[in-house]
Design a binder for these strands. Structure first.
Length: 929
RNA sequence: GCGGGCGUGGCGGAACCGGUAGACGCAACGGACUUAAAAUCCGUUGAGGGCAACCUCGUGCGGGUUCAAGUCCCGCCGCCCGCACCA
């Protein structure tokens, strides 16, 4: 028998699939649709094993759903704009476009080797004009719908490269490439108003619209959106407080003395007190709080260094300015924030407590207040907030508990080193006394509102999405800046705004080449025809990936989407990708779909009905004595010791980590394909670990997968033509046939369920078991395999089955001879995992057509039920034997069988049986003492 | 710090809703084939004891609930992930 040779067989079948257009999506709307999609790759140059795992999973689902009769859409494309192309241009002098398209060519070739059931006719790259022109159109629509805003915001600015950096690109305050100290710079930026959709983005996480998403991703999005409910409260500034400006505020009790601001209580609506000390125009400060119930515990007010009030003081007060500058120097890294001490700068200003006449609250600029959240100002309640407590202890401010924990005594309860954050009863709080925290929050808000001092408010952590990038290699933002008319949208008839040609050398100069192209940049204003300039920013590449899945489903040359097609295919039924996209990409796409719905492009509410986040591919790391990383292919590992392949020197084996170029623990899929074939890779990468967990790539493991491929071929090959032969129906089935049929239908049921539930590792384990069952049966089955193992399989020495099922008659080997049926099922069960091997086997067996078009095997329920059960019997919870009973046996019969079992008898001798627990179909437990 | 998750053989991992712990794979060991090796095939493999039938122990640690706990509850320990001064 010829050994299975994937090098010849695999390309042959890929050619057949191409020739027969096997995976072109049909327009057949009669069948239920199924859209399976893996996150599309960035064309970095090579396919890595992480891609292989991702696409292999999607491919299993796609092939499985096809076999089950779904109209499947399984497309592929390229997330092709982005920074690496410009870096490559800088380093190698090749144009970003050339570099990108060359990479796409190379990666497409590699991907095709994996044997994916993809409709390549729908392929596109986001840098194709045919794609990004419609993105420009969508942007204009969003603009018109009020979802676009242009405003100033702070960015990380690299003064050497003259570009904006993402937070991830700032390392220790320096630009990752230039090494220059990053500046905070205020720039006019384009924003998409994702916060307009915050409520709905949040609501959908919990109302069942995303029930097919993993809990952890939903949780991460919920935290990211970060909704909190509370109140905005206005604190008026008190007059005449500057005398004590720089001394810590005394304890409130000590402040009883004739209060200068007692008389300044508002006399009615509209009466304001104007502090002499506050900068012009500041009469009060609005704070945001989630705990209005603790207002009676307030002992200070603090504002962010960026707060207009602080900035106002800084203009005239050098010390204030110095303090603010100091705060801004503190890094934004987590470590810096952890270590940063709470610091405040006392402004010459007091605020009035809205509820307590005469309580003066000192006002500080504090380094721990963020301008970007709430109003950028807080009231401090040290007794019930950790940060406020730190601050109060440092500056000697009052700590007034107002929530009494259950079971504590009001007279003795005191705050120590920890604030009290839990539930309890309000006290020290006048009209709130005796209320629970929740009731007090409501009561306080009502009071504030009735006083006109504030209002209930909801806050989100989510910020609007800044989409401007000062980059060449991205989708141009279709806007024009006119001196007279301001910012004007590009008229739709002028789309697309095509990226202009630039020489590759342009990328050696820092900054955006588009800024240096007056011939492209200067245009007449679409409104006044006067002088105007194009926007030179391009879109964040996350915009490109926010709607590509819709374009796959419904591309048209003359519009972004065909609505009917989009509504048919969307949402994506199964989306698969890395958990690293749990927030940004998945949130942006959810927002984009909402915007597209608002602007009439489609009707769905959510882009991805089911989401699966797969684990990474890891590998051991290797270093030589000098600490240099070594590629796995340059290392020989034997008996746990590693040596260099070339010199034989010892190599240190490091921890198992995610494959990365920097640590060189990468294995090239290309090489493995040529060594073992695509099927073996696909099999191995899905076999060892559950899909959501990391999988360690090992050569031995892949070799094991290769052995399986060969073993399946050796099992199938001798049964050549088995699906075409007529069977002798007159012969009674052997017991082995019955057993094999049970194994077959058990395997069908189990594998089906496991694939359905994304448990590929278990499905594969079941296939191994099934294969073993076939190989054992093959030796004695009525249709015996030539060349199969000559030994008498041991499992067949079992006692005959008490009640064998009668053989069924009818089509395709079913019921007559167990082996052809088993082989037919086996080949179809492996087809999603090892599609090339399955085709070869299918053809050999004489199956009709291509196996990728064959229907999924159906399990016969009658064969899944057993007539005889083997029940373990426990005595006092310990297993002492097992009994064989008919499935229909009554409890009493089971009990007596259990009691007479030899091992059981031995263990209950001399004891009294107190109770017998019979769990039908499971176990018997005899309680004796 | 806050939120979430996870701890099972030498390794990756199975174990449905509380019901025979360790499926399946890898590695290791023994055997067959071979001049030999590779490949392949057969077998063994949680720990300890026993010639054996079998017995004892065993799912991070300590308690608890239950006829029965890897699974449920309480308290620890360890690891991983996400967020991070969000008022």
């Amino acid at each position: 028998m010829a050994r299975y040779n994937p090098k010849e067989i695999e390309p042959k079948w890929r050619q057949r699939w191409d020739d027969e257009k096997a995976f072109l999506t049909s327009a057949d709307r009669a069948r239920p649709k199924y859209y399976v999609l893996e996150m599309f790759p960035y064309p970095s140059g090579r396919i890595h094993l992480g891609h292989v795992r991702n696409y292999a999973m999607g491919d299993v689902i796609a092939r499985f759903k096809r076999a089950r009769g779904f109209n499947v859409l399984h497309p592929m494309g390229w997330d092709a704009f982005g920074l690496p192309a410009e870096n490559a241009a800088m380093q190698t002098g090749s144009h970003p476009r050339d570099w990108t398209y060359a990479n796409i060519e190379a990666m497409r070739r590699e991907l095709k080797q994996i044997g994916l059931a993809i409709d390549w006719s729908r392929e596109f790259a986001t840098c194709d004009v045919g794609y990004y022109r419609w993105q420009q159109k969508l942007f204009l629509d969003f603009w018109q719908a009020g979802l676009v805003e242009r405003r100033e915001s702070y960015v990380n600015w690299d003064p050497v490269d003259r570009t904006v950096l993402a937070n991830e690109q700032v390392i220790d305050g320096k630009g990752w490439r230039s090494g220059a100290t990053v500046e905070r710079k205020k720039l006019s930026q384009w924003f998409l108003k994702i916060t307009d959709k915050a409520e709905d983005l949040l609501a959908a996480l919990d109302d069942g619209r995303l029930k097919g998403w993993p809990d952890n991703v939903r949780l991460m999005q919920r935290n990211w959106i970060g909704k909190s409910k509370g109140a905005v409260v206005r604190f008026r500034f008190a007059d005449g407080t500057s005398a004590r400006a720089n001394s810590p505020s005394p304890h409130p009790e000590e402040q009883k003395a004739p209060s200068p601001f007692e008389t300044l209580r508002p006399q009615g609506e509209g009466a304001f007190c104007v502090s002499k000390d506050a900068p012009d125009g500041f009469r009060d400060v609005e704070i945001y709080t989630t705990r209005p119930d603790t207002l009676f515990g307030a002992s200070f007010i603090a504002v962010a260094p960026d707060h207009p009030l602080a900035q106002g003081f800084a203009k005239t007060d050098a010390k204030a300015a110095a303090f603010i500058a100091e705060c801004q120097k503190t890094g934004t890294s987590q470590e810096a924030i952890d270590k940063a001490e709470k610091k405040g700068f006392r402004l010459p200003l007091n605020a009035e407590h809205p509820f307590i006449d005469g309580r003066a609250l000192p006002v500080y600029i504090a380094n721990f207040i963020l301008m970007g959240y709430g109003t950028g100002a807080i009231f401090g309640c040290p007794a019930h907030d950790a940060r406020d407590l730190d601050f109060a202890r440092k500056y000697g401010l009052a700590v007034i508990p107002v929530v009494l924990p259950p079971g504590e005594d009001a007279a003795s309860f005191a705050i120590g080193d920890e604030p009290y954050l839990g539930p309890g009863t309000l006290y020290n709080s006048e009209f709130l006394d005796g209320l629970s925290v929740d009731d007090a929050i409501d009561a306080a808000v009502r009071k504030i509102e009735s006083m006109g001092a504030g209002r209930a408010a909801t806050q989100f952590r989510l910020r609007d999405w800044g989409v401007s990038r000062q980059r060449y290699w991205g989708c141009p933002i279709p806007a024009i800046h006119c001196e007279k008319c301001g910012v004007v949208p590009v008229p739709e008839k002028d789309l697309p705004i095509i990226l202009p040609e630039v020489p590759a050398s342009a990328f050696r100069t820092p900054g955006n080449p588009l800024d240096r192209m007056p011939e492209w940049r200067n245009v007449p204003c679409p409104e006044c025809r006067g002088h105007a300039e194009r926007e030179t920013d391009t879109f964040d590449t996350f915009v490109d990936s926010s709607w590509y899945f819709a374009r796959f489903a419904a591309a048209r040359e003359d519009r972004p989407l065909d609505r009917a097609d989009a509504d048919y295919w969307l949402p994506v039924d199964q989306y698969i990708g890395g958990v690293e996209h749990a927030i940004l990409h998945l949130l942006y796409a959810r927002f984009f779909i909402r915007g597209m719905k608002d602007t009439g492009h489609l009707s769905v509410e959510e882009p991805f009905a089911n989401l699966f986040t797969q684990g990474m591919v890891t590998h051991a790391t290797y270093r030589d004595d000098e600490g240099q990383w070594l590629l796995p292919e340059d290392v020989i590992v034997e008996a746990g010791k590693a040596t260099r392949a070339d010199t034989g020197e010892a190599v240190t084996i490091g921890p198992i980590e995610k494959m990365s170029k920097s640590k060189k623990n990468v294995v090239s899929p290309d090489e493995i394909v040529s060594k073992y074939g695509a099927d073996a890779i696909r099999w191995f990468i899905l076999s060892d670990s559950p899909p959501e967990r990391d999988v360690e790539w090992t050569d031995a493991g892949c070799n094991g997968a290769w052995k399986l491929v060969a073993r399946i071929w050796e099992t199938v090959e001798p049964a050549k033509g088995a699906l075409m032969k007529a069977h002798d129906l007159s012969r009674a089935p052997a017991d082995a046939d019955i057993e094999l049929r049970r194994a077959t239908h058990g395997a069908i049921a189990a594998v089906t369920e496991d694939i359905e539930n994304f448990r590929f590792n278990k499905a594969i384990a079941r296939i191994y078991e099934f294969l073993t069952a076939i190989r054992k049966a093959a030796g004695v089955s009525s249709l015996s395999l030539q060349g199969a193992s000559p030994q008498e399989p041991r499992s067949l020495n079992r006692p005959p089955h008490p009640d064998p099922l009668p053989p069924k008659t009818g089509g395709e080997g079913e019921g007559t001879w167990a082996l052809p049926e088993a082989l037919s099922a086996l080949v179809r069960l492996i087809a999603p995992f090892t599609p090339h091997l399955a085709e070869e086997c299918w053809e050999t067996l004489g199956g009709e057509g291509l196996v990728c078009n064959a229907p999924w095997p159906e399990a016969d329920p009658a064969l899944l039920q057993k007539e005889t059960l083997i029940l373990p019997v426990q005595v006092n919870g310990k297993r002492r034997g097992e009994i064989s009973v008919a499935a229909s046996a009554e409890t009493r019969a089971i009990e007596s069988a259990a009691l007479s079992e030899a091992g059981v008898k031995r263990h209950i001798e001399g004891l009294t049986v107190r109770k017998i627990v019979v769990v039908p179909g499971r176990i018997v437990n005899i309680v004796a003492s």
